[in-house]
């Protein structure tokens, strides 16, 4: 029994469908029959062409959007609204510009009713973990893009979520900063032991970080293939030069190449 509990799924997604009804226009099927389960402590990424409904799925899991049918369960409990067991990091800058770093990191705790002193103590721990020590009293506009995204990650982790949802968190960063942030995310993940579901366009990012990569096909979004990433941990940037790494990236690229090309063509048209 104890063994069962240990192997329990942190997140299960059962038969999720999502159709956007639009008045006066044809409805759009965004997701079709998504079934996934993610083990506790696992790092899973979803990759796919633009328009494959990845972000929609993440919003359904977070409880920001209702599914048209199907169930999302976190540790067995069905999700109907946002909750403290999940936390999301958005692609765009979602920090409150009028709050300092420490107040931003404490935001989720304060919303949940944690006393200010306790919230700040917890926030301080995650600020240290995210390498932001000394910047507690800075405002977001005084930080670089990479640092702002660290604040976003710290804010999400501060509420002690079972599952961390990352919506292309490094997409707005330059290539060098992105690589550094990837290794830092791995460190933070290993320290916190949280389950992570990441959405990304970058195949190499998904392979580098994940235990498993889910490849989505587009319009409507559905699971095309699940690729286990059996690369050893802990990982560092050296790994990206290994043959096995390159082979995995190639394999995933071939799975979505056709759809990425047609998405690009559609955008041009």
């Amino acid at each position: 029994m104890a063994g069962d509990a240990k192997m329990a799924d942190a997140l299960t997604i059962e038969g999720i469908n999502k159709v956007f009804e639009r008045t006066g226009k044809p409805s759009v099927e965004a997701l079709r029959d998504i079934n996934l389960s993610i083990r506790e402590g696992e790092f899973v990424s979803i990759v796919g062409a633009s328009g494959s409904g990845k972000s929609t799925l993440l919003r359904i899991i977070d409880g920001l959007l209702p599914a048209s049918s199907g169930v999302v369960r976190v540790s067995g409990h069905a999700v109907t609204q946002p909750g403290a067991d999940r936390a999301m990091v958005f692609q765009q800058d979602a920090l409150l510009p009028w709050k300092t770093v420490i107040d931003n990191v404490a935001y989720g705790l304060l919303i949940a009713g944690t006393p200010r002193r306790d919230a700040h103590a917890t926030a301080q721990r995650f600020i240290d973990m995210a390498g932001l020590k000394g910047f507690e009293q800075h405002y977001p506009h005084q930080l670089s893009g990479g640092m702002r995204q660290r604040v976003n990650v710290a804010r999400a982790l501060a509420v002690n979520p079972k599952i961390l949802l990352l919506d292309e968190p490094f997409a707005a960063l330059d290539a060098q900063t992105r690589e550094i942030m990837q290794t830092e995310l791995l460190n933070i993940w290993q320290k916190s032991g949280t389950t992570v579901l990441l959405i990304t366009h970058q195949i190499d990012e998904a392979v580098f970080l994940s235990d498993r990569v889910i490849v989505f096909s587009a319009r409507p979004g559905s699971v095309r293939e699940e690729i286990p990433i059996p690369l050893p941990r802990p990982r560092d940037l050296e790994l990206k030069r290994h043959e096995a790494f390159g082979a995995l990236v190639d394999r995933i690229w071939h799975l979505i190449e056709h759809e990425v090309r047609s998405a690009v063509a559609n955008n041009r048209a």
């Binding site: 920001l64 999940r86 999301m88 958005f90 919303i111 949940a112």
Partner: peptide
């Protein structure tokens, strides 16, 4: 909109 969505993600009430 993203700031409102982030607040909702932390389960903030309409008043919050």
């Amino acid at each position: 909109k993203i700031l409102i969505e982030a607040a909702r993600s932390f389960n903030a009430s309409r008043w919050q």
